[in-house]
Each structure stands twice: as C-alpha cells, then as structure tokens.
C-alpha cells in the first residue's frame, strides 16, 4: 500500500493532487463529470475585490504542447463568490478548498483576504502575484522581492489561514522572490504561473490573442517548472507546491522528486476533464513501480 497523505501547511491532504486555479472553475462544473472529493483539494478561480469581465476574445491560442491564455482574471468579485459560488462549491466538495486571490493593490489583496478569511471550508489562501494578463497589478507584485514581501506581510496580517504565495516564472531570479516571501511570513509557495508569450495570425499579420500577449502553459513548460521548483525547494524551508505542465502521475512523481510537497494540475484538465481522477488512480502504481511507499518521503528526499 502506498501512503499518499501529505501535510500542506498544517492541513492534511488525502493525496498531493490539486487542480490549479483557473482550470477548475469553482468546482461544481467538474463535479458533473466525477466525484471531486477524491482530490487532495483544488484551487478555485482567481478572485478579485470587484467583478471582472477580463479581456476580449480571442483569449486562447494553441501552441505546440500547450496553450496561451489571456483570460484576464474573469470572476464575479469576492462578494458574489461568497454569496453565490461558495454555497454551490460546498454542495459538491467537502474538504478544505484553496482560495485563489488576485489584486491590483496591497489594499485589494488584503481586503479580499480579510473577507475570505471568515469563510468556512476555505483551508488556504493562495495569493496570485503572478498573473501575466492584467495591467498594473498581478505580476508586477511578483517580479520584485520587496513588493512580493509586502503583499505577503499585508495578507498574513489579516488572516489566520495558511498563506501560499503563487510565483511567476517571468523573473531573472525566482529564488530571491521565494526567499523574500518566506522571510515575510509565507506559509507556502506555489510555482510556476504561466510564462509570457505570444503568437501571430499570418493571414491577418496580427497577434492571435486580443490581449496581444498571454500566458503559456501545458507540457511545453514542464521542464522549466521542474527546474524552478527544484531551485526554490533547495532554498526555502516552507512547503512548495509544484505546477506547470503536469499531465500524468509520472509528472507528479517527478515534481515531488524535485522537492514539491504537493502538485497542481492545470492545462491537463482543459483537454481531459478526468485528468486529475486518472492521475490519482495511477499515482500509487507509478510510485510502487519506482519503489516508493509514501508521498512525503519523495518530497523529503528531494529537499
């Protein structure tokens, strides 16, 4: 028997598999397809203070082994998330969920965190300082160690829930940002968000995305994600959630080997709605194949 349990910032997960924010809505759409309570947890759609429509379409462009997206944080705003989305979420998911928070100012991050802190059923606050598809917020907090630390401190001051900072790969030195967040009190880190990219339509000679640029995700980014998770896991003591192109149980095991405590699955959910279910079923077999009996040992060996 393989022991899949992992402790993520003081909360136990039945297994390390977590659908990533923005690929799983608020859970209930996917619950039409399978019982999502088999998941370790999931990170719900990035939530801001005010409702946001996001960017114009096209928001999606295909790439070899992945896609670009420029959704731009579409969400109904924190109050409607609390009044409309969370009640539906609680009907289909009975474990602590990860709340994903985005913002355009320190005040916005803290206000959304303050409101979600009161909500039952939310286990962790995942703070997205890495969205590449909005202007004047998002990623600008994640590319500077001082700004990243400031967001971390501000959010920590208004919540008792574990705070996980989601980092961008669009930086020269991700380790310095990770360390700054740890020193500012972050309980965990998740990485990587998408890599900034673009594509052109040769017929129109215009960018394919209405937003011009978008975030690259999918198997194409997996080696970059692994490298960054490895570098960060070596440099900090807090748990690291590895994500970026994870598509199979083997990929999960490789992320754990790089030092991740848990693993998020993003783009794979979009092309195969049963991706996480299949990964959870496959993971014990793949672990046995490589001689592992518990998930946490893989992580410890990697750090």
């Amino acid at each position: 028997m393989v022991n899949m349990n992992v402790n993520l910032c003081g909360i136990w997960l039945d297994n390390p598999v977590i659908p990533a924010s923005g690929t799983f809505g608020y859970g209930y759409e996917m619950a039409e397809h399978y019982d999502i309570n088999i998941l370790g947890t999931f990170s719900f759609k990035g939530t801001t203070l005010e409702p946001r429509f996001g960017n114009p379409t096209p928001r999606i462009a295909e790439c070899p082994a992945g896609l670009l997206n420029a959704v731009g944080l579409q969400n109904p705003g924190v109050d409607k998330v609390i009044s409309e989305e969370l009640p539906l979420l609680r009907q289909v998911f009975h474990k602590p969920v990860m709340a994903n928070i985005s913002g355009f100012s320190l005040e916005e991050y803290t206000e959304v965190a303050r409101r979600l802190d009161k909500e039952e059923g939310i286990g962790w606050l995942e703070i997205n300082i890495s969205c590449p598809n909005v202007h004047g917020g998002g990623m600008s907090f994640g590319t500077d160690p001082k700004a990243a630390a400031a967001v971390t401190r501000a959010v920590k001051a208004v919540t008792t829930k574990p705070v996980i900072i989601k980092l961008t790969p669009n930086v020269t030195d991700i380790v310095s940002i990770a360390k700054a967040c740890e020193e500012a009190g972050a309980d965990g880190l998740s990485l990587i968000n998408t890599l900034l990219g673009m594509r052109f339509d040769l017929k129109t000679r215009q960018p394919l995305l209405a937003n011009t640029t978008g975030g690259l995700s999918g198997p194409a980014v997996f080696p970059i994600a692994l490298r960054m998770v490895y570098q960060v896991a070596q440099a900090v003591r807090i748990p690291v959630i590895g994500l970026g192109g994870v598509s199979s149980a083997r990929d999960v095991l490789e992320m754990l080997t790089a030092g991740a405590t848990a693993v998020q699955v993003g783009s794979a959910n979009l092309i195969n709605p049963a991706a996480c279910k299949e990964i959870i079923e496959e993971l014990p077999k793949v672990m046995e194949q490589y001689g592992f009996t518990e998930v946490k040992t893989v992580t410890i060996a990697g750090r």
Partner: peptide, 27 residues
C-alpha cells in the same frame, strides 16, 4: 462561435459580454 480552451465551462476562455452579463459560449 469562439476560440475555446476546454469546451465545458472550466477555463473562461470563450466568455462574451451579453445584455445579461458575461456568458461562456461553450457552457
């Protein structure tokens, strides 16, 4: 018609503005 990420309502890739607020073309 719209370019889609998932086709089943998860990714918000195909959202449009309507007279009744944002709607996903796929869902």
């Amino acid at each position: 018609e719209e370019r889609m990420g998932c086709g089943f309502g998860a990714c918000m890739g195909c959202s449009i503005q309507t007279a009744r607020g944002p709607k996903r073309v796929c869902k």
